[in-house]
């Protein structure tokens, strides 16, 4: 009997529980098998392998060493974890859910958009941005001020409903991870409980959102792409049309640069171009100088209020 955990439309079978993820014990088959083992970094100079300081990537494998924490080896249907001496499983899972999970999903043609998603009046709004772009800040704030429901915090798996002919989203990861500075936005919500810190030395707190996420799929109303890099402090909205929509969305696939290595460019492009053709996309530019309150107000007044 193994622990079976469903994560982003994939079934994981492991000989141990995957941190605090809801799971069941069963002998059933799975998409990905997770086990412990001893690992070594692949030798240098192998043809078809690309070497980085902490990782090695090839067409059908990925090796990652998080210094002093763990080594991971991934193939399409297997993850081997080698926990390093002195680290804790809490440390190991921090990187498992941050990098390893995304890479295994890519290997299985599950393209994760780097975004947080909320539901307002049963319509989903996704805030896409790179790390530090304010995704979780927006989601947490609108949960408080607009009574929006959180669907996903950081990694969104968008799916196409062939019967209803629409793109939709459902929660796949029942936790929200907020920096201590942003957790004030949800501290009054009795249904969202803090679980633990991501790592004991890091000020990021994991909250259980399993109680508050919509249980059904929610149709996607709008994708709001937030880009930092504007030189002005004011927030600007830019209309994105045609192929530009696809191009911008492609850039928001997590670990997009791995896709060519795994030879998944074609299915990825098919999926993203189809999404771009059907979903409304707003491109919002802000700068590092923009105040959080001004940014939130702009998103609310210019994009959410007009849409809802």
């Amino acid at each position: 009997m193994n622990f079976i955990t469903e994560l982003y439309d994939l079934k994981f079978s492991s000989t141990f529980p995957l941190a605090k993820m809801p799971c069941k014990k069963s002998k059933e088959a799975a998409d990905v098998y997770v086990k412990k083992g001893r690992l070594k970094r692949p030798k240098d100079g192998k043809k078809g392998f690309f070497y980085k300081p902490f990782s090695v990537i090839s067409k059908d494998s990925y090796f990652l060493e998080v210094p002093k924490i763990a080594k991971f080896k991934l193939t399409k249907d297997q993850i081997i974890i080698h926990k390093l001496r002195g680290s804790t499983w809490q440390d190991v899972f921090a990187f498992f859910f941050d990098t390893v999970l995304i890479v295994i999903l890519l290997m299985n043609e599950k393209f994760i958009i780097h975004a947080s998603a909320i539901s307002i009046n049963k319509k989903a709004y996704l805030f896409c941005a790179n790390s530090g772009g304010g995704k979780s800040l927006l989601a947490a704030n609108f949960m408080k001020t607009k009574k929006a429901k959180i669907i996903e915090d950081d990694k969104c798996l968008i799916q196409y409903n062939t019967r209803r002919k629409r793109f939709e989203i459902k929660n796949c990861y029942p936790f929200m991870e907020l920096w201590s500075t942003d957790s004030k936005y949800i501290k009054d919500n009795n249904k969202i409980k803090p679980v633990r810190r991501i790592r004991s030395n890091i000020q990021k707190i994991q909250f259980d959102i399993g109680q508050v996420v919509p249980k059904q799929y929610t149709p996607i109303e709008k994708l709001i792409l937030v880009q930092i890099g504007n030189e002005e402090t004011k927030v600007e909205q830019e209309e994105i049309k045609g192929f530009q929509k696809t191009k911008i969305l492609l850039a928001h696939i997590q670990f997009e640069y791995f896709i060519a290595f795994f030879q998944k460019s074609k299915p990825q492009f098919t999926f993203i171009s189809s999404l771009a053709s059907q979903v409304s996309i707003a491109h919002v530019k802000r700068s590092n100088l923009t105040k959080a309150d001004d940014f939130i107000k702009f998103i609310d007044e210019e994009l959410l209020q007009k849409s809802t």
Partner: peptide, 22 residues
């Protein structure tokens, strides 16, 4: 982040320093 393949925010200051040369 782009070279390490992991989120630098998950490291503390001392841990970051150990990786910067690489």
């Amino acid at each position: 982040d782009s070279i390490a393949d992991f989120d630098g925010r998950l490291f503390d200051e001392e841990e970051i320093r150990e990786q910067q040369a690489s």
